[in-house]
């Protein structure tokens, strides 16, 4: 049948068609604002970030240390059992060197971003964050890193209370 269809539907527009007003458009900006309740687990997580610590929840059945913390274990489908602090050091699981900002605009100074699995949590459990004090040529998967915290008075209870993760120095652990 596709071989028999002479003209496939659709009329292509160019950017110029829009700029020159050849087609009409209606504009609307939705009034959409949200304030999500963080819930029990993430509220505590954010409070601890403000205090300069990372906290996880343990599940006694599967014996995992869950980070970021949650009040229920998705594997066992039961409430988690206890709070436990984990360390602010970890390992780069993966990363990207981004020349794009949020809106896909080009930036000249690239952002180093990736996933860090954290020491003290179960294997592979971590968070997305930025990397600093390293160049795009130095960063690699498996690199050991440590959180660089904002000064206590600047922290707000946000993942941004950590500025970025930097390489672990010689002899540091």
């Amino acid at each position: 049948m596709t071989a028999r269809v002479a003209k496939w539907p659709g009329v292509e527009l160019s950017a110029a068609d829009l700029l020159e007003g050849k087609v009409t458009q209606t504009r609307f900006r939705p009034d959409a604002k949200y304030a999500w309740s963080a819930g029990e687990a993430i509220s505590r997580f954010l409070e601890e970030l403000q205090a300069g610590r990372l906290i996880a929840r343990t599940c006694h059945r599967c014996e995992r240390i869950l980070f970021p913390p949650r009040m229920f274990c998705e594997e066992c489908f039961r409430p988690t059992d206890a709070w436990t602090y984990i360390r602010d050091t970890g390992t780069i699981e993966t990363y990207s060197v981004s020349y794009l900002d949020t809106d896909a605009k080009r930036i000249s100074e690239p952002i180093l971003v990736g996933v860090v699995s954290l020491d003290g949590a179960s294997p592979k459990m971590g968070m997305m964050h930025y990397f600093g004090e390293m160049t795009k040529d130095e960063i690699r998967i498996g690199m050991r890193v440590r959180a660089v915290w904002r000064p206590a008075e600047e922290r707000k209870g946000s993942v941004l209370d950590i500025r970025y993760f930097r390489p672990l120095r010689e002899g540091e652990r």
């Binding site: 939705p30 959409a32 604002k33 949200y34 304030a35």
Partner: peptide, 24 residues
């Protein structure tokens, strides 16, 4: 429903109206 997380529920419902015929 976690509608209490939505600060502008009426704005959201309004956004369901036809963009050409009704929203204007």
């Amino acid at each position: 429903s976690k509608i209490s997380d939505v600060l502008t529920p009426i704005g959201i419902i309004e956004h369901g109206l036809d963009p050409i015929w009704n929203k204007p």
